[in-house]
Design a protein around this nucleic acid. Sequence first.
DNA 1: GGCGCAATATAACTTATCGCTATGCAATTG
DNA 2: CAATTGCATAGCGATAAGTTATATTGCGCC
Lengths: 316, 316
Amino acid sequence: MQLDPNHLLMLAAVVDEGGLTSGAHALGKSQPSLSRTLAALEARLGQPLFEKGRRPLVPTELGAALAAQGRIIWQASGEASVQADLYIGGKTGAVRVAGTPVFMDAVIATMIAGFQQAHPNVRIDQSYGYADTLMRDVESGALDLAICPLPPGDLPEPIAFEEILQGRNVIACRMGHPLARKRALRLEDIANYPWIAPPTNSPLYQDLRAILHEIEVEDVKVSFSGGSISAVRTVLEGSDSLTILPYSVIFMMRQQKALTALDIRIKHAPRNLGIISPADRPVRPAVRRFHRHIASEFKALARSISHAQQNSVWRA
Amino acid sequence: MQLDPNHLLMLAAVVDEGGLTSGAHALGKSQPSLSRTLAALEARLGQPLFEKGRRPLVPTELGAALAAQGRIIWQASGEASVQADLYIGGKTGAVRVAGTPVFMDAVIATMIAGFQQAHPNVRIDQSYGYADTLMRDVESGALDLAICPLPPGDLPEPIAFEEILQGRNVIACRMGHPLARKRALRLEDIANYPWIAPPTNSPLYQDLRAILHEIEVEDVKVSFSGGSISAVRTVLEGSDSLTILPYSVIFMMRQQKALTALDIRIKHAPRNLGIISPADRPVRPAVRRFHRHIASEFKALARSISHAQQNSVWRA
DNA sequence: GGCGCAATATAACTTATCGCTATGCAATTG
DNA sequence: CAATTGCATAGCGATAAGTTATATTGCGCC
C-alpha cells in the first residue's frame, strides 16, 4: 500500500495536536481539508485511523503507527526547511578560497578568523596559488574565490576582479635594522644586506629582480628562500636580512612591533590586490557572504592604512 | 521556507538512483514529472540542486543536504506502507480476548500458543471473566472477543455468538480413582468423595449444585475451592477428590494421562461454548485472524473429540 | 572535431487532488 | 436539556502533478 508522505504528516499533526481543528491550525490549513484527506486515507486503508464516535479524537492502533512515521516525516521536512534557510542565508555551506601564500597567511587568515566567529557552520576550504592557476580554477569552478594581486586590465572573459587594495610592495626588515633609522635611503644601500628570496613563481620575486636590476646588482646574497611568511618573519626578526613584502602585510603585523618597512619607494609593475570571482556562474550564498566579509574587511584595512599614513606624514 | 515532503522524496530518489530517468523509474513516475518538479523546487529555493551542465547528475551542497532529509522521508514512507500492510493483513496489532478462567487456561492458552507461533507480532491481551461481564465488555468495545459457554438463544442485540463446541460437563477425577474403574455408576456413589468447588460465580458451580440437588445431597464435603485450573488439577491428581469440569478440558489433558472423566452423564442446563464478538463494529484484521484461528482450532478439537468418542464406543 | 547515443529539459494538455467557504450534524459540557 | 464546540459533507475553483511528444544538451567514440 503506497502512502503519501503528506497524508502521514497530516495524520501526525492531528494526532499530536489532539484534533482536526488544532492540527489544521498547526499546518496552516483548513479543518475540512484535513478531515477529507484523512477520510480518504481511511478509505484507502479500509481501516479507521481514529476511534469512531469519540470526541477527544483518539487514534486507533493503525492510526498511531502511521502517525509515528508521519512524525518522522514532519521532523525531516522541518529540518529540510531549516537547512534550506540556513543555506540560502549563507549561514551554512562551503567556501573554497585560495590566494597567494603571503596574503593568505598574513592578511586573509585574520579575516577568515573573524568570519568563522560569526558563521561557525560555514566551512572554509583554503588553498594556495598564484594568479594564473587561481584564475583557471575559478573559471573551471574548482574555486569559489581567489585573492591575489593582478596588473590592471588583465581580465579574461568570465572572470570578475574586484580591486580591493592598492598593491604596494616594500622592503621589509626587523624593527631595529641599521637601515631602518636612516633617512634618505638609496637603493645602493640595500645591496649590502642578505636577502630572503620570495618563492620564484611569486610576483614578489619578480619585483625583487626588478629592484636588483635597477641598481644593477646581478648577484645578491640570498640567505634564505623557500619559507612561508611565518618562517620569513622569524628569520627577518632574528637577522639583518631584507626581503620584499606587500605593505599591507607589514601593516597587519604592526601591533607586534617586530617588522617595519624601509622608507624607500620601490618601483614595480602596478598590481592591485583584488578578489577574483566567476562572473557568469551563480554564486552560493555562503560564498557571497564570505566575499562581502572579505571586501568589507579590506575596505576597513585600506582606511586604516591611509589613516596611518596621514598620521606619519603629519608627524614628519 | 516550507518544503513539500514529496519533493524532498523525489530529490532523494534522483540523487540515490543517480539520475532522473532511473529515479523516476524507482518512484513509478515519468522522467519529465521529476524534471519539472525539481526545476520548480530549484526556482523556489533560488539555488540549484544539481551542478549545472554535468551529465552524471551530481547534487550541490544544498541538494545533498535536502536529499538526506528526503531519504528519511522515503524510509518513513516505506515503513508506513509496511506497517499498514501488516496491520491490514492481520500480522500485527493487538487482540483483547477474555473468557472463563478454566477454558482460557486449559483450552484457549494452547490455541494462543499456536497463534503466537505463526504471528509473533500480534499482541494478545488476555483477561478473565464470566458471561455477563464478557458480553458487556464486548459490547462496550473494551474486548474484541470473548470465549465462554452460553445457553442457546440468549443474544443481546449487537452481539454475535458463534457456537463452537457442545457444552458437556463431566465429573473429573484422577486416572486411578476408585470410581474410574466402576461401570454403571450411580450418582449416589459420588457423594462419598470430597469435592473441589469451582468458583461460585461460574456456570460449573451451578452445575455442581444441580447435581447435588438431584441426588438430594445438600451438604457435600468441599475439600478445596478457589483455585485455578492448575491448582485444581494438582489437587485432583494427588487425591481422590472429584470436581466438575468441561469435558473438553479433560480431553485437552488426555496426553498426560493424569485425569479422566467418570462414565456418568450428568444433567445440566444446555450451554454451548462459543465466541462472542461485536456484530456491528468493524473488526480489526488481527482480531479477525485470531477469531478464525480459534474457530478452526475448535473445529479440529470437536472433530478430535467425536473421533475419540467413536473409538471408545468401538472399543467398548 | 564531428557524429551518434542517451539523458534531461521543455511544451502542451488532462486530470486529480488539494485548498477554500458554507453548512449540517454529532458529541460533550454546563 | 440547551448551548457550544468540533467534525463531516458539499460544492467549487485553482494549482500542481501526471501524461506523451519533442527539442536540447552533454558525453563518448571514431
